[in-house]
């Protein structure tokens, strides 16, 4: 399944789609988007890459084993939820910074949680797709 058009397109699409996915993640709190959609778009970009070239090259483009994303994502999500415990508040209380940053606005633990979701979704989908594709090749 090697098509010159597909592979060329994918090569230029990959960074764009990744950028788009991060954009979706960042704006999720105020516009449609968020960790789930962002993670899916990012995963789809690598899935296309694996389709256009092969899994080996997709894995190389990703650099990190997708399963690592699952663990790291869960860890980030849980840490963001536990942070409030140290401030004497109940589990998962949202904590926000006082100052507003130029692009994001205030940053809070729910946003960090969303980053965790993004990574888990990315890791899960790629783990599934890569293992399946490798099984077939």
């Amino acid at each position: 399944m090697t098509s010159v058009i597909l592979s060329t397109a994918t090569r230029y699409m990959l960074p764009l789609l990744l950028l788009f996915s991060v954009f979706l993640l960042l704006r999720g709190h105020s516009e449609p988007g968020g960790g789930f959609v962002g993670g899916l778009v990012a995963a789809a970009s690598f899935a296309f890459y694996a389709f256009a070239y092969n899994v080996k090259q997709a894995r190389r483009a990703l650099r990190i084993n997708p399963r690592v994303f699952i663990g790291v994502g869960l860890l980030i999500a849980v840490s963001s939820a536990t942070y409030s415990l140290f401030l004497g508040k109940s589990f998962m209380t949202g904590i926000w910074t006082e100052t507003e940053f130029p692009v994001f606005g205030a940053i809070g633990t729910p946003f960090i949680f969303d980053v965790g979701v993004y990574l888990v979704v990315l890791g899960v989908i790629l783990t599934i797709v890569f293992s399946l594709a490798e099984g077939e090749q």
């Binding site: 789930f36 899916l40 979704v121 899960v124 989908i125 599934i128 399946l132």
Partner: peptide
């Protein structure tokens, strides 16, 4: 539904395999 869609995919993938 948003979570259900994503979970549904996970279940479908697992069932398929």
């Amino acid at each position: 539904i948003l979570t259900a869609i994503v979970i549904g995919f996970g279940v479908q993938a697992f069932a398929t395999v």
